[in-house]
Amino acid sequence: MDWLNDEVLRTILATLDATLRVSTPLILCAMAGLFSERSGVIDIGLEGKMLAAAFAAGSLAALTGSAWLALLAAIGVGVAMALVHAFACVTHRGNQVVSGLAINVLASGLTVVLGIAWFRQGGQTPSLPSEARFMPLQLPLADTLASVPVLGPLYRDVISGHNLLVYIALTIVPLTWWIVYRTRFGLRLRAVGENPLAVDTAGISVARLRYSAVLICGALCGVAGCYLAIAQNAAFVREMTAGQGYIALAAMIFGKWRPLPAMIACLMFGFLDAVAIRLQGIELPVIGEVPVQLIQALPYILTVVLLAGFIGRAVAPKAIGVPFSKER
């Protein structure tokens, strides 16, 4: 155990800690996408909803100084964007991919336009004091247990010391699982993504189900955006989502539209991200220096490989992308 000196251990713990931090928005967005897509509505607009929500959170926190109001605003904006998506895809049976894209492009433009108009800081929102943010929480006994070998430091440095939204994200996963597989809503949700006609003939409104699913998706994207702007960072920065919405989408597909595997995919992608930063410029034994860009592209490459059926098969809900119409 010679190699396991303090330095290495600290690096490992720090990497795991960072993994959890960068995975949080992915997990929230992946669960968001899962609700929408399980109901049969493709959502490539996770990115845009998260971005708009992040902007809302950054703005509200700067204006009111309240993290909770900011969270509320982020959820509100996420839901509002989702409402547009549902209106286009469910009510008007528009193309779901086009609608999601519209939301992404709209959010990308609007956040900067409004940000500059309102705050005049080049698209950024004002830097937030810690009272206006979700700050790290020390879990009970973190320091007391630190002396326990392996688990102690793991608890103190990785599990403990995150902000509330991280823990919320981690609870959302089992909650999602429970909703999808153990409740009436979940049963109907899974059914409507597979065969909406069966749901309709069973006397359930397809439109209402899909609206609920898409709105839940918007709310979760809102939490993710809020996390980015006022928990992980201390302000909204233009384009701060930087493709994480798409990575979350990839993770959800990677997890085959199931909550726990999707979360594992998020953690894996988050881990890659955390590692990428540390590996920069470091020569690894045997492989040599791994280009950071390769590690950054790995989530996308892996998802393509998965979709190509080279590692298992990702089967989407059967009715996904098809607007429901009673006319035959």
Binding site: G186, R190, A191, A198
Partner: peptide, 22 residues
């Protein structure tokens, strides 16, 4: 009008679940 991935039981109760929990 069946959800092919569902069991017979799940198909039957769909829309007549008797309560919010399954």
């Amino acid at each position: 009008m069946l959800v092919e991935t569902f069991s017979v039981l799940e198909n039957v109760i769909l829309g007549a679940e008797q309560g919010a929990l399954l």
